[in-house]
């Protein structure tokens, strides 16, 4: 009884700010301007199939890059002294205290044709006068923006799982003759899977639905699904119904991706057990 009443505020919060808004999204997605039931909003999805595909592709690439970068980083943080851990986690968190837009703007001036990188390359003679590497306004720049902005969301769950791995388990593996490689793949990796999963979720979801990054780093020539959803709410011909339908489909697509990941994880888990 006690624990149930303690959960009441959260229940109210959930109802007000998760369930009610979700219900509104669903309601808008299946109605037209007059409030009548319709499926026509969903037909807009065909029009934006390209944007969906590109968003998922870029989001997936960014997520994989985050994982590749964050995994060794999180592991090395989890293996140092507690004091050093605190400092390193702090350093990972530090950029997040700055506004997201500001950080993305900063990347703009790093990647521009007359930005830091190109100026530096010209200074050391790699590039001639007036030459520049095409860094800004590319899909690569968009992925970079995503990786930079969402990396902490991958590092932190990985770290918090890894720091709980009992050192003795690793030592036992070593005592039983495992080399470093085997320790990593047979012991540490299986034990860190929950962290990997929540990291993937926390990076992939915002990466797929991101907007603004495309505008600032991608040159705004191609819209990702996040940009399209934004403009269907505040564009000139704003149509909340289409926007809601697109959001709904995006949510379902993300759910499917997540289900797929956890399925893969289960398969791996069992394989790991048996081996």
């Amino acid at each position: 009884m006690k624990s149930r009443s303690a959960a009441a505020p959260f229940g109210i919060w959930m109802a007000l700010f998760t369930i009610v808004p979700l219900a509104i999204v669903v309601w808008f997605a299946f109605t037209d301007q007059n409030g009548d039931f319709t499926l026509s909003n969903l037909s807009a999805i065909g029009e934006h199939a390209g944007a969906f595909g590109l968003s998922i592709a870029l989001g997936a690439i960014a997520t994989i890059l985050c994982l590749v970068l964050a995994y060794p980083l999180a592991y090395s943080i989890s293996r140092v002294s507690e004091r050093a851990q605190q400092t390193m986690v702090m350093i990972i968190m530090l950029p997040m205290w700055m506004n997201f837009l500001l950080r993305t703007y900063a990347w703009m001036s790093i990647l521009e044709n007359n930005g830091f990188i190109n100026q530096f390359l010209r200074l050391i003679g790699v590039l001639g006068e007036g030459q520049s590497l095409p860094l800004i306004n590319t899909n690569g720049a968009v992925v970079l923006g995503m990786v930079y902005n969402f990396l902490p969301f991958m590092v932190l769950p990985l770290y918090s799982v890894m720091v709980k791995i009992d050192r003795r388990v690793i030592e036992a593996a070593q005592d039983l003759g495992s080399n470093g490689f085997q320790v990593l793949f047979r012991v540490i990796f299986p034990l860190s899977v929950p962290g990997i999963l929540s990291g993937i979720t926390m990076v992939f979801v915002p990466a797929v639905s991101t907007f603004v990054i495309t505008k600032l780093l991608g040159g705004s020539k191609v819209m990702l699904i996040g940009d399209i959803i934004e403009s269907s709410f505040i564009g000139h011909g704003a149509n909340y119904h289409v926007g809601a339908a697109l959001s709904l489909v995006l949510m379902i697509l993300i759910l499917i991706c997540m289900a797929f990941t956890s399925l893969v994880d289960k398969g791996e888990d069992e394989g790991g057990m048996m081996a």
């Binding site: 390209g50 705004s220 191609v222 819209m223 399209i228 269907s232 564009g235 149509n239």
Partner: peptide, 19 residues
């Protein structure tokens, strides 16, 4: 102020432009 149909046309042409 453009009529709703024109606004909708403009938005959809704009999105086509940015595909």
């Amino acid at each position: 102020t453009l009529p709703d149909e024109t606004n909708a046309l403009m938005d959809s042409l704009w999105m086509t432009l940015k595909k």
